[in-house]
């Protein structure tokens, strides 16, 4: 074989690969979302001004969703931020704040209240992204987006490669300590589909957490998201997250 022939073959293969690239493969959930138009798009609203870091949401979530209580993984958690006058930012989430924040020692540091500029709590959970990178990278299609925008995992099909865990910029995914399949917050899919609210929303004593339907303009959550100033986490990744925050600080990671 001479060089010309060799280059011809390579050129042909490259063209073939390019042609394949123009097709788009849809996951079952994506296809369903395109065909069936749902009149529901679940979204979450967190008011960080109202959160006191009691951790009732984390506790409720663990119990409701069968995540072993003492396993150091969780579908939702609360972070504490302490911004000091000297510019240092301290942050921690002991046990995901399952037991609340019972000690003023933050990130191992005893903080003098006089040194604090501001301090606050930020609850975290799955952002149920419009462009979920976790769904994109699943090699077997075991994780998918439903028509209502919720990203779910099929425990009977997940092979446990961990690629989705790597792909999530928010760190919400983990391996279930019992089933050893990818696990994540589902906005309590089993509850919201039956007219109930999520376990964390129900457990929150201060109304810091709310869930709503973005496609319903009269939904109070939708009204806040549409009319007030809200922010999302890490929008630079292009994932289009659907958990909205009131009072999000620039120091929040």
């Amino acid at each position: 074989m001479n060089r010309r022939k060799f280059l011809k073959i390579i050129g042909g293969m490259a063209a073939g690969a390019g042609a394949i690239g123009t097709f788009r493969f849809l996951a079952p959930g994506e296809a369903e979302a395109l065909i069936k138009s749902s009149n529901i798009r679940w979204a979450f609203l967190v008011d960080t001004y109202k959160c006191v870091g009691c951790g009732m949401c984390v506790k409720a979530c663990k119990l409701e969703n069968g995540i072993p209580y003492d396993a150091p993984v969780t579908r939702t958690w609360v972070e504490r931020y302490v911004i000091l006058k000297d510019g240092d930012v301290l942050a921690d989430t002991p046990k995901g704040a399952r037991d609340g924040f019972t000690s003023p020692v933050t990130e191992g540091r005893q903080v003098n209240p006089a040194d604090i500029d501001k301090a606050f709590f930020v609850p975290k959970l799955c952002n149920q992204c419009d462009k979920p990178p976790c769904v994109q990278v699943c090699p077997v299609g075991a994780t998918y987006r439903t028509a209502q925008g919720i990203v779910l995992v099929d425990r009977t099909w997940c092979i446990g490669c961990g690629y989705c865990i790597m792909a999530c910029p928010y760190g919400v995914r983990f391996f279930h300590p019992v089933y050893h399949t990818a696990e994540k917050c589902t906005f309590c899919y089993h509850r919201i589909n039956h007219g109930m609210t999520t376990a964390c929303v129900q457990a929150c004593p201060f109304d810091a957490r709310k869930i709503g339907n973005l496609k319903d303009p009269n939904d109070p959550v939708t009204k806040v998201i549409m009319t007030e100033r809200v922010a999302v986490l890490k929008d630079e990744y292009g994932t289009k997250p659907q958990v909205y925050y009131i009072g999000l600080d620039r120091n929040v990671r």
Binding site: F25, P139, V140, C158, I159, G160, C161, G162, Y163, T181
Partner: peptide, 25 residues
């Protein structure tokens, strides 16, 4: 790869239901 999977016996699902937006598939 097999040793790394949490469910190695499901490894062949990659051949049966490849999800082509994933590099691993």
């Amino acid at each position: 790869l097999m040793l790394h999977l949490q469910h190695p016996l499901r490894g062949f699902f990659i051949f049966f239901t490849p999800h082509f937006t994933s590099a691993i598939s």
